[in-house]
Amino acid sequence: MSETTVEVLQAVPQKRLRARTITRFFKQWDLQLMVVPAIIFIFIFSYIPMYGTLMAFQNYNIFKGFWDSPWVGFKHFEMFFHSRDFWPVMRNTLVISLLKLLIGFPAPILLALMLNEVRKMVFKRVVQTITYLPHFMSWVIVAGFTISMLSTDNGSFNIMLQKLSLIDEPVNWLSASEYFWTILVSTNVWKDIGFASIIYLAAIAGVNQDMYEAAAIDGANRLKQMFLITLPSILPVIIIFMILAIGNLLNAGFEDILLLATNPALRDVSDVLDTYVYRMGIQSSRFSYATAVGLFKAIISVILLTIANLLARRTGNSLW
């Protein structure tokens, strides 16, 4: 068979194939009806806003709408970079998310390692049941607890410190900027340490038990076994979650900050990219400006995720 005949033979069925695909599409209308509405839904609620981010390059006017608002290029980006808010917001975002990463990331791993050493099953189950619970409570409730615990009006934390003679007078912890980061990070760890440990506990359960036997025979005590067997065995899981955490680095928090930093005096330490977008966009109606800040954040996040993944690929664990 010569090459030309092959081409002819392929060209004809392809046209017919396309026609047949369309007929087949309508023939399986009942099946398509399960999927197409969902796709249209995703188009409306996800893709239209994605396209809408182009308004970062406009002077969006709520009366003119997206189509008639004038284009202004990178004006809003430059405005943000040169604004007084830029450095404080960037600093807070990075510091808060790094603190959450440095403390919030290892904490559940440590908890899982400790729970794994517990031989009394009832005790283990009680600790698990209690520590998982805050994950299911809303941030409003958790913030309510925090405010109540730290309150100067007989908050338990102040009372405890007074009883221990560490302070003389109740301290208003939530209105002093030097304590805010600590409170924020502790509250986050408090809320999610238990729930986040589930995944590591599952990974630990999959570790080959023979290794512990062998290590015990070699004279390794339990602390050594913990760090020389258990931890290395679950390292792949840890790395994957580490990559995800780095990709989320600019998500310094949103609900928690909105709820805990109600005191405007805290803005110097509490304003992060997400809350800034909210404040500028929703509260001050500077739509284009806020969208530009949001887009800036999204781009940096993608870059961070890519870098983290490149690093992880060197260790043989990567997301894609």
Partner: peptide, 22 residues
């Protein structure tokens, strides 16, 4: 196509403001 169309939304979103206006 449907699968990729969906999965893209897990990684990219329009952000708060365009969604608010929508």
């Amino acid at each position: 196509f449907y699968m990729v169309f969906g999965i893209i939304t897990l990684y990219f979103s329009g952000g708060l403001i365009p969604y608010y206006l929508l």
